[in-house]
């Protein structure tokens, strides 16, 4: 007589295998937000894991949507065409800045001893942008209050740039953690790269101007360095732009 066949007991899996199964699952947007803010190591493991491409896609989505939301807050200062122009310029400028600085980030990672692949460095960059833009959403209520109660475009622009610098520093802290986890032993190069990225994004705000305030043209044709613009040109041109 045959005994009823019982399903075999589930073997106890070592932690590593459980983690691999976990890493193979698709990342959701909510999980990704939680990981980048609370559990960066989990996010790094996912970027370097078997579903790295999907993870990068989710991170790009988070960064893009967050930038659009913050862009709407920026555009609310002037209204009109800036409702769509400011978010478009912020998303476009951020993507272009990321692409301009990606090769140097990979080279700096390698020079620091990291064994990260270019695709993993791309994922790390997207995670940094996701963190920075999520933080900007956190700053959005404060930025919106200042936008609505201030007439000076220069002053509002100064607040936006301050929020961006703070958000970027947190994002770059993630890059330092990620590259260390991927074998890098030098953080000074990440510091140098952060400075480069900051310069590129600040110059991008000047290249794509006006992002705050209005102008008869969608993009200014005049070429100017961002420090010159902010300390000499901007106050005269944008003071009554609202």
């Amino acid at each position: 007589m045959n005994e009823p066949s019982l399903p075999p007991p589930v073997p106890a899996q070592p932690n590593g295998e459980n983690e691999m199964i976990d890493l193979a699952r698709d990342l959701t947007v909510m999980n990704a937000v939680e990981f980048v803010l609370r559990n960066p190591r989990q996010m790094i493991a996912r970027i370097a894991g078997p579903r790295g491409t999907w993870t990068s896609f989710v991170l790009a989505f988070i960064a893009g949507v967050s930038a659009v939301v913050y862009g709407l807050v920026v555009g609310s200062f002037s209204g009109g065409s800036q409702w769509w122009a400011a978010p478009a310029k912020i998303v476009g400028g951020m993507a272009l800045s990321g692409l301009i600085c990606l090769p140097s980030l990979y080279i700096f990672a390698c020079l620091g001893g990291s064994r990260a692949k270019p695709s993993q460095v791309f994922g790390v960059l997207l995670a940094m942008l996701a963190i920075a833009n999520l933080l900007l959403i956190g700053f959005a209520p404060v930025a919106w209050i200042f936008s609505q109660s201030t007439d000076s475009a220069t002053c509002v622009g100064f607040f936006h740039i301050t929020f961006w610098v703070i958000a970027l520093l947190f994002g770059c802290r993630f890059i330092a953690t990620a590259l260390r986890a991927l074998g890098s032993h030098s953080t000074s190069l990440v510091g140098l790269w952060t400075l480069l990225f900051l310069f590129v994004t600040l110059q991008m705000t000047t290249t794509l101007r006006p992002i705050v305030g209005t102008s008869p043209q969608l993009l200014s044709e005049e070429k100017v360095f961002f420090l010159n613009y902010w300390f000499q040109g901007a106050p005269n041109k944008l003071e009554h732009a609202k």
Binding site: I100, C101, P103, S104, I107, Q203, V224
Partner: peptide
């Protein structure tokens, strides 16, 4: 050369923003 190639987009961006 590889390091310079990585800087090329940055220099390109600078050139784009220089006065003609």
């Amino acid at each position: 050369s590889l390091i310079l190639a990585a800087f090329a987009p940055l220099i390109g961006f600078l050139v784009w923003n220089l006065p003609p």
